[in-house]
Structures are given as C-alpha cells and as structure tokens.
C-alpha cells in the first residue's frame, strides 16, 4: 500500500441514558476531548486554528438516543483498532461509549457518504389520549410502502411521506411504539418530530403527539 495513504478510525458509539440530552455539538466536543485525553493520534487541519480531523454522522436531536452513531477520525499514524477502543473505554462514560472501531485507509469513500436512511424506534403519547390502534392505523398510512387508497396530503405532510421509507406501529401496553425508517441525507432529512406531525395529519383529529423515547437504531444506505 502507498506509504502516503492516511488511515482513519471509524468509531461507532452510542448516545444513551442521561447523555441522550446532549446536543450534536456537545457530542462532537465530548468526542474530540475524549480522543485528546486518550492520546489517540488524530491528525489536525493545517492553518491558524488547528482542528482535529473528525467528521460525524447525521446529528441526533437533543433527548434522542443512538445505538450506532458514527465518528470518523483521520489518524496521524496507523493505530490498531483494538488499541483505540481500549483507550477510549477509559475516557468515555458507558452512555457515550464506543461500540466498535475499525481502522481503514482514508482514500476509500467515507462511510458517512451515502447514508440515506435511519431506523428509529419511537415511543409516543398523545394529548388527548386516543386508542393506540388509531395511531397505529395512521402510521400505517405513511411512507412509500403505503399502498393505494391513501388519501393524498397537501404540502409539507405529503413531502414528509417522501422522506419515510417504512413505518409501522405496535401497541405495547399503554404505549405505542413506532418503528420507522426515515431520511437522514440532506435531500430527505426528517426528524422524529416531523414524523409525528405527519402522523397527526393522518389522524384527521386535532391530536398532539409527542415522543417520550426516540432511539436511532442504525443507518441504511
């Protein structure tokens, strides 16, 4: 392999528990500081204000959890993935811990490119309360896989449907859990909040939905 090729670490981490309240910026700062504490030799940008060469996957909203979030760090020197995992283990709390790390040449396409869809598990409550089945029904009408007979929506809600690949809902005791695959790329991004607005629009009753737990489980291309 060409000696000049840089290496990069693809760090898969979680954002869970009480640390789900961190914003995307908080997470990027925390990760940069953890890498510096761990003395992982990450490369720096050139110039006056040198920054670590880090890139992150799509932002996760404040309060939402992520089980397989992505951070790519360009390395100053080739470092074994196991060593990075081990060093980071001491520098990050469990709730923001590293799930796995791979080290690969930096001349390949970035794993962050072409991430188009994210799989979500979203627990919702409604105000006023409605039978969970109604919510499930409304969710079933969303997304590209929803078949004929779906009433067409105007404007934003219709646009939201294009950003939903799959959506279904299950009743879990009192709770309704939505399992959805929604867009994360620049041209199809949809937040869990916007997903719920789309469900509300399908309910055809003035009902406010909010999520009490939202977990981004992973990504699809």
């Amino acid at each position: 392999m060409n000696e000049a090729v840089r290496w990069r670490a693809v760090i898969t981490y979680r954002k869970t528990g009480r640390l789900r309240y961190l914003s995307h910026l908080d997470v990027t700062r925390a990760m940069e500081r953890a890498l510096r504490r761990a003395a992982v030799r990450v490369a720096y940008t050139q110039g006056y204000n040198q920054r670590m060469r880090l890139s992150f996957g799509p932002p996760l909203p404040v309060g939402a959890e992520g089980l397989r979030e992505l951070c790519v760090a360009v390395l100053e020197e080739r470092t074994a993935a196991a060593e990075i995992v081990e060093r980071l283990r001491h520098q990050l709390p469990q709730e923001l811990g590293c799930v796995e790390t791979t080290v690969e040449p930096d001349d390949r396409q970035s794993p962050l490119k072409h991430l188009r869809w994210a799989n979500w598990r979203i627990v919702v409550v409604s105000d006023p309360p409605v039978p969970p089945e109604q919510i499930c029904g409304a969710v079933g009408l969303l997304g590209r896989q929803a078949t004929g007979g779906t009433p067409r929506l105007e404007g934003e809600e219709n646009d939201a449907s294009n950003r939903i690949l799959r959506a279904e809902a299950v009743v879990n005791g009192e709770e309704v859990e939505i399992l959805a695959t929604i867009g994360v790329a620049e041209d199809n991004y949809l937040s869990p909040d916007k997903l719920l607005r789309a469900v509300e629009a399908r309910l055809q009753r003035p009902i406010a939905l909010r999520w009490t737990r939202a977990v981004r489980v992973g990504f699809e291309r």
């Binding site: 009480r18 640390l19 309240y21 961190l22 914003s23 908080d26 500081r33 953890a34 504490r37 404040v62 309060g63 520098q91 709390p93 709730e95 009490t212």
Partner: peptide, 20 residues
Amino acid sequence: PGDLLLRVETPARYVNGEIN
C-alpha cells in the same frame, strides 16, 4: 426526572456525570 428534561432548554446542563 428524565422525560421532563425533554421540556427544558439545554437539558444537558442538568444531567451531571461529567468527566472528573
């Protein structure tokens, strides 16, 4: 409690557990 943190601004300032 957890779900109420969703209703306040910048909830991360109330969560503790910082390094050190």
